[in-house]
Design a protein around this nucleic acid. Structure first.
Length: 482
DNA sequence: TTTTGAGTTGTTCGA
DNA sequence: GTCGAACAACTCAAA
């Protein structure tokens, strides 16, 4: 027990003890450490965490609390605007220092900057560290000193650097303060849904640091070797599914990086080969998203490419609702949207296809899709979500040319040829064979009858004609280009 | 400053 | 069935 002033460690999206630079910095100070989490959702503004993200956070906080208890510590939960809550905690505990790991979203950076300034003005120590990215967004620049806007040169630039520092292990013990401040009960934060729609999430995920470590290990053992070949198959669990763990900071990119290099070493692969591998490039896309949102903070709601700001989006709440519910009549789109609703996650390729369908075939504004994903994804991340939707809509960095319109039937036949993924999420179509299931409206009456499918009753007719809506979207785009 | 090569993820059409 | 070209021209990043 220490009588010296304690340090607060302010946990946010870094809900881990392994490789946590802010925690280590606080410990190095030698004083007692008071881990704190502040629920400041009202400060989140336009992009306050969505329902699925809150569900995740609840369980992740419980896991963090358990990890802290094992080390003689505990997690203090508070509510309110962050600065006021931190000041109150400092007053209550006599703490004279606050450490945290940085966030990079525009609103969060503005808030954190104000907090740091206010604390320092009061004579407190206020220090931030990087736990979330391989490189700080301001440290990666073109030769001209500008931010990158194309992925490949961005990633090549990052890969020119030496490996990021190896991850630091969690401290064995955290010195406790003379007395613990009062804490809200976790349940009082109201992060869990009031009506129980979360059973599917609970079945699919294990939020928290131990779950993240387990997931990483499983992925490396079972899927890293086949990642490049199988990552596009939605029926196969060949992707890492680390995104929610990374978003909530239960795992950091440095840990992933070094785990991949270690596995490559054990398998007799060269480090260079591992660094340029397909999977680490996905970590690169995560970095690139943060890079872009940091340097172009308006892009969370405005297109990076201003040319597409006046695209003639359609207003169609009925179509939007059908898309959200997985009732568009296009099997792969509906399967993806139902996977999202049930598990809080959707396979990457299917995200692109469902997004393309909303933006191009239904011609709904990409922000409508972005907001739905924001509320329903357990990995909802402002940078990645913004980038993904702008890419699909053709108004982002490195964006697909607008005329690149995914055909959900072609994609379905190519990436889920046997219809395994479709049958998993569309039980009403499960008895259709692999010729009919990708586009039931093209199936013969006999095939539908044999499978017990009445189109328009058991499963909807498609809400748009794919070919006609494709050419209508291309027409609108051509017109905009003038 | 100018030039040049290149750019995650596609579809369709016609040979 | 397979393959290459067209889609439409643009912007970025580096030489």
């Amino acid at each position: 027990m220490s009588t010296a002033p304690a340090s607060l460690v302010w946990f946010r999206q870094d809900l881990r003890l392994d490789d946590n630079p802010a925690l280590l910095a606080a410990l190095q100070r030698g004083a007692a450490v008071i881990p704190v989490y502040i629920d400041s959702r009202p400060e989140g503004g336009d992009w306050a965490p969505g329902a699925a993200s809150c569900w995740w956070r609840h369980h992740s906080l419980a896991a963090l609390e358990a990890r802290l208890r094992e080390r003689g510590s505990r997690l203090t939960l508070r509510r309110g605007p962050a600065l006021a809550a931190l000041q109150r905690l400092c007053a209550e505990t006599g703490a004279d220092a606050v450490y945290w790991n940085r966030r990079y979203e525009p609103d969060a950076m503005a808030r954190d900057g104000a907090v740091k300034q206010a604390l320092r003005r009061q004579g407190m120590v206020a220090e931030s560290r990087n736990s979330a990215l391989l490189a700080e967004p301001w440290q990666v620049a073109t030769q001209g000193g500008a931010p990158f806007q194309v992925f490949t040169p961005f990633w090549r630039r990052v890969l020119r650097e030496p490996d990021p520092p190896p991850p630091q292990p969690a401290p064995a013990r955290l010195a406790a303060p003379a007395s613990w401040p009062a804490s809200e009960p976790l349940a009082a934060l109201g992060l869990l849904p009031r009506i129980g729609w979360d059973a599917g999430l609970a079945a699919a995920w294990r939020p928290g640091e131990p779950g993240a470590a387990q997931r990483l290990e499983q992925f490396i053992d079972a899927s890293l070797g086949v990642y490049a070949e199988q990552r596009d198959l939605p029926a196969v669990p060949a992707t890492s599914r680390l995104s929610p763990h990374l978003h909530h900071g239960e795992l950091g990119p440095r840990q992933v990086w070094h785990a991949v290099l270690q596995a490559a070493h054990e398998r007799g692969l060269g480090a260079a080969e591992a660094r340029t591998g397909r999977f680490l490039a996905e970590l690169g896309w995560r970095e690139f998203s943060h890079h872009l949102l940091f340097h172009f903070p308006h892009t969370a709601t405005q297109p990076l490419r201003a040319a597409l700001a006046h695209f003639p989006w359609r207003e169609d709440p009925v179509a939007l609702r059908a898309w959200q519910r997985g009732a568009t009549g296009v099997p792969l789109v509906d399967a993806g949207m139902r996977e999202l609703w049930a598990t809080g996650w959707m396979h990457n390729r299917v995200r692109m296809i469902t997004a393309s369908f909303l933006v191009k075939n239904l011609r709904q504004h990409w922000l409508r899709g972005a907001r739905w994903f924001w509320d329903t994804l357990v990995d909802a991340d402002l940078a990645a979500n913004t980038q993904g939707w702008q890419w699909t809509a053709g108004c982002g960095a490195d964006a697909a040319p607008y005329f690149r319109v995914f055909n959900p039937v072609t994609q379905s036949r190519r990436f889920d040829p046997q219809g395994v993924y479709l049958r998993r999420w569309l039980p009403e179509l499960a008895r259709l064979d692999e010729r009919a299931i990708h586009a039931p409206w093209l199936a013969t009456a006999a095939a539908l009858a044999a499978a017990g499918v009445r189109l328009g009753i058991d499963y909807p007719q498609p809400i748009v004609d794919l070919a006609a809506s494709r050419s209508a979207a291309l027409g609108a785009w051509r017109q905009l280009r003038g």
